[in-house]
């Protein structure tokens, strides 16, 4: 069965979707990704959708699911490279992908993931400070 490869880069997972999604493929990606997060205790997931020319309500829902599921497992998901036409179509369709964090490209997405980890570290620090 066709599967989308998931690459591990340190604390992060990198998924580049190079083919147009269909429902089964998207569902497989969801379960594969969640299992891989658990396996490597990953802290962040970066999904590059710059080559995806269509996202409908089902695939939108899968992206939302991935974001929420990974969040529960303490991993931050960032979706990068959404094409303008896809973004406008999603908005017209009535989907705003609440809970999904986006970035313009892979580089920005990586920065965002690192800064998120950084701030969450800092928050813990601040919390400790307050207690003293």
């Amino acid at each position: 069965m066709e599967r989308i490869p998931i690459l591990k880069m340190g604390d992060f997972l990198l998924v580049t979707i190079q083919v147009d999604l269909y429902d089964q493929l998207a569902e497989n990606l969801e379960s594969d990704l969640i299992n891989t997060i658990s396996k490597h205790s990953s802290k962040g997931v970066l999904i590059d959708i710059s080559a995806v020319s269509i996202i409908d309500s089902f695939m939108g829902r899968i992206l939302g699911n991935i974001a929420v599921m990974s969040k529960i497992m303490d991993a931050q998901t960032v979706v990068v490279g959404m094409q303008p036409a896809v973004a406008i179509t999603l908005v017209e369709l009535g989907l705003s992908l609440n809970g999904v964090i986006s970035a313009l490209n892979v580089e920005r997405g990586m920065d965002l993931l690192r800064s998120k980890m950084h701030t969450s570290d800092n928050e813990e620090q601040d919390y400790d400070d307050d207690n003293e």
Binding site: D23, S53, I54, I55, D56, S57, F58, Q83, P84, A85, V86, I88, T89, E92, L93
Partner: peptide, 17 residues
């Protein structure tokens, strides 16, 4: 246009589902 193409195939995708 790309935008109208995208809207059309997204609509198609919804309806075919």
């Amino acid at each position: 246009s790309i935008l109208n193409q995208t809207k059309l195939i997204t609509a198609t995708s919804e309806l075919v589902r």
